[in-house]
């Protein structure tokens, strides 16, 4: 839109209709493409720089240094794949991967299912809907550290759920996930779900509310049960909302860190290790930068392997879906 007055060769050719007699009049020139939408382009420059320097630049820097033997300080003495061999030979890392798989799968499934169920229940025109929505969304306003501490206490056998149930008379009741090698990850999962499902519910509720009332009327006239309408008609219609939820949940899963720190610090032993925790510990506890970089590069690769084909299918093929 900017009227620059700069003539370019393409601009002169852009007015073939001008005849010789009009040569004395100023000829309207097509502005150079470079200066079109100039204000928006200037406004975008900081973000473009951020993306290039911080995201792309630092990612490359990290990947490069994962092939070195950097300890406390980064240095460029390449050792090939040595850091990766160490990484995959490390029990802690293997436990982290296993934990992430369990936590990720359960968290994704339960967040979507519980979030949608809550949204569907709230959608049935209940009383005090706003109150319930606020209560369910409230944990989302807390930091992971607070959530972790709260659930550490709730799950503590000395004064948490176990204590309460035992006081009710069930003397042999045992519920102590945080001190069990096997179940500790589910203790973290409960806290994660408590914090995260509220947001998923709100997104889903917004999606459900956006659906034309007549769809419901039509399905009632046809005698389709409510649950079937939700599953077969409503869920496919709120697909974009579900995609958004999946992306949000997935990014939460990959970066889960503070919740583990606050609840178990990776314990008991190493049984609740997570990849992000492993990265932080190697980089700052062990002063082994290259090993941390190798682990974070593996996380990047894993995310890329899942994300790129999916993003291509979801957004690249949009035109063909009509």
């Amino acid at each position: 839109m900017a009227d620059t007055g700069i003539s370019s060769s393409s601009g002169a050719r852009g007015a073939p209709g001008s005849v010789a007699t009009q040569a004395t009049l100023p000829i309207a020139r097509k502005p150079s493409r470079l200066f079109r939408n100039l204000a928006s382009k200037i406004a975008l420059v900081p973000m473009i720089l951020t993306v290039l320097v911080i995201f792309v630049g630092c990612t490359i820097w990290t990947v490069v240094h994962s092939f070195t033997s950097s300890k406390l300080l980064p240095k460029l003495d390449f050792v090939g794949l040595a850091q990766y061999e160490r990484l995959w030979g490390n029990d802690r890392w293997m436990v982290s991967i296993k934990n992430l798989a369990v936590y990720g799968t359960c968290s994704m499934i339960f967040s979507l299912v519980i979030g949608f169920t809550l949204a569907a229940l709230l959608d049935r025109k209940i009383r005090f809907e706003n109150t319930f929505r606020t209560i369910i969304l409230y944990p989302f306003a807390l930091s992971f550290i607070v959530t972790g501490l709260v659930w550490q206490w709730i799950l503590n056998p000395d004064f948490g759920i176990e204590k309460v149930v035992r006081d009710l008379g069930f003397e042999s009741f045992v519920f102590d996930p945080l001190h069990s090698d096997q179940f500790v990850i589910y203790g973290i999962l409960i806290a994660g779900l408590w914090q995260g499902t509220g947001l998923v519910m709100c997104l889903m509720l917004a999606g459900i509310r956006g659906i034309d009332e007549d769809i419901w009327k039509a399905s009632r006239i046809e005698g389709i049960p409510v649950w079937k309408t939700y599953v077969q008609i409503i869920i496919p219609m709120i697909r974009p909302v579900i995609v958004t939820s999946v992306v949000l949940i997935a990014s939460g899963i990959v970066k889960v860190y503070d919740l583990v720190v606050a609840q178990t610090s990776g314990g008991p032993g190493t049984s609740s290790q997570m990849p992000a925790l492993y990265v932080m510990d190697r980089m700052f506890k062990d002063q082994n930068l290259a090993q941390g970089f190798a682990a974070s590069t593996m996380m990047l690769v894993a995310v890329a392997i899942i994300l790129i084909p999916w993003a291509y299918l979801e957004f690249g093929g949009k035109k063909s879906r009509g």
Binding site: D212, D214, I215, K217, R220, I221, M237
Partner: peptide, 19 residues
Amino acid sequence: EPSERGIGMVFQSYALYPQ
């Protein structure tokens, strides 16, 4: 119930199932 009344209904917004 609407489905037991022996009626068919057509809506302004069509109310077709898009998928």
